[in-house]
Amino acid sequence: MAKKYSMVINLARCIGCQACTVACKFQNNVPEGQYRTKTPANGIKGTYPDISTYFIKEACQMCQNAPCVSVCPTKASHYNEDGVVLIDINKCVGCKYCMTACPYDARFLNKETGAADKCTFCYEAKVSQGEKPACVSTCLGGALMFGDLNDPASDVSKFLANHKGEVRKPEFGTHPNVYYIYEGVVK
């Protein structure tokens, strides 16, 4: 049965340590100055001394209805057999149309290949080998979970079963496969 890979991000546990950011760079040879993921603070809310903040990991949201895929003139952007949105860098001409279409600023033009680039869920090197994505396995705060939503026994299925997972910018109908848990943080 086809997989439905998904990442769940428990914001209350994210400490903005950027271990994910760096692990991703090395796992995927992301060029200097470019990132597939970053985890900045979501600003500070309130006024001293009653304030709060949380860190939010930004990367491709793995939309099941992905604008980047539908607009891509060469079909370089595509869904693979497990519903993961990937880019075939040989087909990609670097027209950046997908970048204008992505509502999450998840894509960039790879300085070295000239092709569009983004989070791949580490599909080729890790997930397809039965391992966790690089960012997930190094997550210091223990905020990241990854797995197959079609498998009720997976961490992500179990976690989402008793926590409220929310997707970003649902108004665009992109149906992301990345879920954020806001329990314990001030949204």
Partner: peptide
């Protein structure tokens, strides 16, 4: 172009 590829590392 030809020398560089963003292949994920195995």
């Amino acid at each position: 172009m030809d020398t560089l590829k963003a292949e994920a590392i195995n």
